[in-house]
Design a protein around this nucleic acid. Structure first.
Lengths: 247, 247
DNA sequence: GAGTGGTCTAGACCACGAG
DNA sequence: TCGTGGTCTAGACCACTCA
């Protein structure tokens, strides 16, 4: 029931995967050329490329045009912790993390007006952020804050938000509620190149809406992570009394 | 910057996409056969299949082996609501939903022992579930419950769990806490065929662990949804007092 | 059995990267 | 220039669906 028909490309993918997993091919190492592998496995190049596509989707192999196929360094899974909206403490404390943040003021339009519940044209502070761990990017963020809800000083002095943004945490004052909508989808071409993943593979996209106790939206964040590097974890505690609401 | 080199398959994908978007090809309708399209566009079948793979990744086209390529009906986004672990009320109440549940008793092994915090070999009730909306599948679930924590009657009379499982809700008594870990990844070959999505595209996979007030794991669920049909939403409310925990 | 998609072959030619 | 991956061709054969 669980077993599928084994195909040649999956056989080859399995073989290469085990060689990678057991360390017979080291992280960072280049695989033999596609032509060479096709020859070794006695398949056409198209089939062999199918096998590599499987491994690429799993995040085990990175293809670089003109150079070769490389075993990716073992990816420490990064955790995005829901609720507070932050990366896990280990990752957030990582010294090798670097972030580039671009700050701008934009006018609300389209989807943003819905997310932030503001009229079209409202001024918003926008933070665009790429997070890198050494060479490899592991997250994109676009964070929007209504200007009239944030002390101007905070936004103008972007450094005070920088720390929060670095961790992908909610900016500004503590919100009363955070709603996070998660979806899995293929990356846009932009995202694929920014995150250096193939157009195969998937991204974990999180839309985060933070509201204060008055119900005003104090922040909207659009976060994009490579699916093979980041998990998101959400924990909820139930009061026993809440059981009544089930009826 | 944003534009890529146009390839033949993208040209064709763009053309077909516009025909779908403008309604010239209706939802549910079958596209001409791949051979026919390849002939019309003057490309090889492999190239044409590349074009269809793009559209399939976008969720516009559904391939059915032996029947053809079909334009998908505009997909009502389904919501998985975190915390309680359930589909949204609208979807859950949908009469067109049908579910097949298979019940079995298995012994804990490998990953399951970690998830459920039980020793290897412990008896578990397993519910395997495929959820369909009309013809198209929109969810897979494998739910495990330790047999010694559940009244035998409940499990033997599977119908009492059926309603919960249909909504992907947590089975059995109300747990004290639910932890849901979300990841985006390519489907396994099994999942791709069960959900009728290509091996391209992405799935939203949720691992849900429910624990009771004593910290015992009362349920582990492995849920898989097609990325283009399901979003997961998580809402957290913060007591202002919790601010202290930020330190 | 006819028609469909799924896998695969054995090439060709192009685009990129490095010497 | 050479070796690499990227795209594409024009087929072959198999597996599935349906009449």
């Amino acid at each position: 029931m669980t077993a599928s028909v084994p195909t040649r490309r999956h056989d080859i993918a399995d073989d290469l995967r085990s060689q990678i997993m057991t360390g017979r091919i080291q992280p960072g190492e280049r695989l033999p050329s596609e032509a060479g592998l096709a020859d070794r496995y006695k398949v056409s190049t198209a089939t062999l490329r199918g096998a590599l596509a499987v491994l690429q989707g799993e995040g085990l192999v990175e293809k670089i045009h003109g150079k070769g196929n490389f075993v990716r360094r073992p990816l420490r899974k990064i955790l995005y912790v829901g609720g507070w909206g932050t990366l896990d403490p280990w990752t957030a404390a990582e010294p090798a993390l670097s972030v580039t943040v671009r700050t701008a003021t934009v006018r609300a339009h389209g989807h943003l007006t819905t997310l932030l519940k503001v009229p079209t044209g409202s001024p918003l502070a926008e933070f665009s952020c790429v997070s890198l761990e050494g060479e490899s990017p592991h997250g994109l963020a676009r964070i929007y804050v209504p200007r009239d809800l944030a002390p101007a000083g905070v936004l103008d002095d972007a450094s005070s938000c920088r720390e929060a943004v670095t961790r992908f945490a909610v900016t500004g004052p503590l919100p009363a509620a955070v709603q996070e909508t998660v979806c899995a989808r293929p990356p846009t071409p932009d995202e694929a190149s920014s995150l250096r993943i193939g157009s195969a593979g998937a991204v974990l996209a999180i839309t985060r809406i933070a509201t204060d106790s008055a119900g005003r939206v104090v922040e909207a964040a659009l976060l994009v992570f490579p699916g093979d590097r980041v998990d998101a974890v959400f924990t909820s505690h139930h009061m026993i009394d809440e059981r009544q609401t089930q009826g």
